[in-house]
Design a protein around this nucleic acid. Structure first.
Lengths: 146, 146
DNA sequence: GCATTCCGGTTGCAGAGTACAACTCGCGAC
DNA sequence: GTCGCGAGTTGTACTCTGCAACCGGAATGC
C-alpha cells in the first residue's frame, strides 16, 4: 500500500499547511473579525443563540477563553447577552443586528476569495473535493484536526 | 453552474471547520512538539534542508517568527544551522539526529491517527484527495488560506 | 572602487489567543 | 440549611504572531 501511505502523508501535511495559513491570514483579510470571532458568530447564528459553555464545548476551548472572546464581541456590539429566566447563572448569547451584518459581510468576502481561488477548477473536481472534505471532517467529529 | 457553486460553498465551509479544529487541538496531541515546530521540522526533512526565508515563504509567516522558532528548535537540539558557502548571509537549516528521531516519532503517532480516520477510504480516493489539497494549497501560495 | 540598494536574519515591542487556577454566585440534592 | 456542582469571570503566564528597526553581506549602479 505504498501509494495510500504517501497519500495519507500528503493529506496530513497539506491539511496542516492549510490550517497554519488560515490562522496566519485570517486576521489580515477581515481585520474586524478574527477567525475565532467569525466562527463564534457563525455558531451563534446557526444555533440561534446559545450559552458560553456550549461554545466552549463545541470548539474545545477553555471557558475562560470563551468568556473573554464573548466580552470582546459584546464590547464591539456584535452580540448581546440576555439572562436566562430559567437559570440565573446562564447568559444566552445572541447576535445583534450589527453582528448579523458583519457576519454576512465577512461571509460574502470569504466566499468571494474561495470562489476566485477555485475558479480554474473543473466542476467535477470541485464536487469531488467538496465531498472528500465533508467526508473527512465528518470522520473527525470531535477528535481534533491534527 | 449550480453544482460548482455549491461545491465551492462546501469547500469553504469544510476548510473553515477544519482550520478551527486544528487550532483548537494543536497543542494537545504532541506535547513535546508544537504544531509549528512539527511543521517546520517536517518541511526541513522533506526539503532536505533549506533557509529560514524559505520556511517563512512556505508557511506565510513573518521572518521574525521563523527566526524565533528556529532558535528554539536549535536550542532544543533538533536542528542545526550551517553557513552557506555560497552566501554568507544564509544559514542552511538541517535536522539533527535527535530532530529526525523526534519527528519520526511524532509522525508515527500522527499518521496512526490519520490512518485510522482514513482507514475506510479506497486508495484511489486518498490519492485524489491528496492531489486536490496540494493543488489548493499551491494556488494559495502566499495568498493566505481563507 | 565606492555608494546605493537589496536580501537574509535578529531583536525589541506589542497584541491576540490560549490554558490553568482561584474565585463568585446561583442551582439542586441531601 | 449545607454541600457539591455548574456557569461565568478574573489573574497570571505562556506561545505565536507581525511590524519596525536594525545589522551585515551581496548585487548593482556609476
Amino acid at each position: 500500500m505504498r501509494t495510500a501511505e504517501s497519500a495519507v502523508e500528503t493529506i496530513q501535511r497539506e491539511m496542516t499547511v492549510f490550517a497554519r495559513r488560515a490562522r496566519a491570514s485570517a486576521g489580515r483579510m477581515h481585520p474586524e473579525l478574527s477567525l475565532v470571532s467569525y466562527t463564534l458568530l457563525g455558531h451563534l447564528e446557526e444555533s440561534g443563540g446559545c450559552r458560553a459553555t456550549d461554545l466552549a464545548a463545541h470548539y474545545a476551548l477553555d471557558k475562560s477563553t470563551v468568556s473573554r472572546q464573548v466580552a470582546a464581541l459584546e464590547r464591539a456590539g456584535l452580540i448581546e447577552r440576555r439572562p436566562d429566566p430559567e437559570d440565573q447563572r446562564v447568559q444566552v448569547l445572541q447576535l445583534t443586528e450589527a453582528g448579523q451584518e458583519i457576519l454576512a459581510q465577512v461571509t460574502r468576502r470569504r466566499r468571494a476569495a474561495f470562489r476566485e481561488r477555485l475558479a480554474e477548477w473543473p466542476e467535477d473536481d470541485l464536487v469531488r473535493f467538496a465531498a472528500y472534505l465533508e467526508r473527512y471532517n465528518a470522520g473527525a467529529e470531535g477528535i481534533g484536526a491534527d
